[in-house]
Design a protein around this nucleic acid. Structure first.
Lengths: 248, 248
DNA sequence: TAGTGGTCTAGACCACAGG
DNA sequence: CTGTGGTCTAGACCACTAT
């Protein structure tokens, strides 16, 4: 009735991390040493540590060894998007927030024309084969990729506008959309939790065992027409999503 | 410059799932067959499939084989909590929502006195060693565990109240709290994303590769005093979190 | 260059549930 | 009973990077 050896190894270090015997940044013994200590083959040790890597508790830094993972959360507030701003802001909201903490924000921006597909078609009330403008950005803090923000617009709305240019827009796309006559008055936020795709792992430099939150932000005009759908991919080890509610 | 064999195997089936060649519920070839097809050892096949299990794309059902995972999301609306309800509701909100879709909701309830600890202490503005009442529930749909809802209260507020009894409360703890003079007027929702603890895996019957969203709901009275902090653990493969915003 | 983790093999035995 | 996945071993070679 005993647990398999690799699970005992995992449980041992999971416990040491939970109780603080091992703290973030601390190094674990090498696979070789653990094989000796537990009297098992190295592959068995690897299976055990693999469990903890999958749980996001430790990371392998070759050829240094295994380390207890350190995490730092930035606050992510979807509601900020619908709060008033100065008419001519110096920076977009993300840059503002990061710069306020003394760090350096930056972007990579890319604009593409794509087929809507099922997810976007449903939210923007288009045909799945309709063309949408995808404004794809990766946001960086101090050069480290932090999250993905892909905004999508029906092409009829934004043709020939600034939104089509892969350049930084200090006042934000929402403002541009409003100037085009599509001011948003209502939005729906949907959050899914899943493991990242290989593409997301690549774009965000994610380690194994890092789940992501996918935040769909669909904006509607006063007449109820959806004009914008943003897909934000937030690595779980870097974000804390915050909402605020008031009773009515 | 070729990818390792186990990654090619993972990529092969990841692709077939993404493109719909393999659909949810479909079975994969056996480890033995794949070892033959790819000309590698069975352990190598296991490493490849292990990647996909970790990504939550497939599940192993011994001794049947590997299957493409099926997922179904229930809608989770934190904002509902601050919407008005009938004075004497027949069921709590969760049961109402589930029963409305023709399924059967149920609960397991357990009440414990615990030390607050760092997370709760910070949110309830207590000392980490202070005692709080933990009302721990697992919510089931058709007998399947669906999510965890652990509500916490400073003991001074709820001593001798119904909240201390491990019994179903149709009108909900928020109402009881209001009757005790601690009506909530404001709440903060925080959402974290991470891999589940072994305890959560056990309580929720989670498969490998299933991340969870942890939703902290902290409620405040009109005077700004925190009176309640609920920790909801939502398996990523079963939930879609939805908020709604209106421009002000 | 030494030592780390990353990959792979070719066996083996086991527990479990379906036919 | 048969075949599945689950676990384990004792080797081997490789790629990478800190020193």
């Amino acid at each position: 009735m005993e647990a398999p050896a690799y699970q005992r190894i995992a449980a041992t270090f999971r416990g040491r991390i939970a109780t603080g015997v091992l703290r973030p940044g601390d190094q674990l013994p090498t696979e070789h040493d653990l094989a000796d200590q537990f009297g098992v083959a190295r592959q068995t040790v690897r299976a055990g540590l693999g469990v903890l890597v999958g749980e996001g508790l430790i990371v392998a830094r070759r050829p240094r060894g295994y380390f207890v993972r350190e995490r730092e959360h930035m606050v992510y507030r979807p509601q900020e998007k619908s709060r008033p701003r100065p008419a001519v802001p110096e920076m977009d909201r993300f840059s503002e927030q990061i710069a306020a903490t003394g760090r350096t924000p930056s972007y990579s921006i890319e604009v593409a024309l794509i087929e809507a597909g099922a997810d976007l078609a449903e939210r923007l009330r288009l045909d799945p084969s309709a063309t949408v403008v995808a404004r794809r950005r990766v946001r960086y803090i101090n050069g480290e990729p932090t999250n993905i923000n892909d905004s999508h617009f029906p092409i009829d709305l934004v043709r020939d506008s600034e939104i089509m240019l892969p350049a930084y827009l200090a006042r934000g796309t929402d403002r541009v959309l409003a100037e085009l006559g599509y001011a948003q008055h209502r939005a729906i936020d949907e959050i899914f939790v899943r493991m990242p795709t290989p593409d997301e792992v690549h774009r965000l430099g994610l380690g194994p065992g890092t789940p992501v939150a996918v935040h769909f932000d669909t904006g509607y005009t006063e007449s109820g027409r959806p004009v914008q759908c943003a897909v934000n991919v937030l690595p779980g080890d870097r974000h804390r999503i915050v909402f605020e509610r008031h009773w009515s």
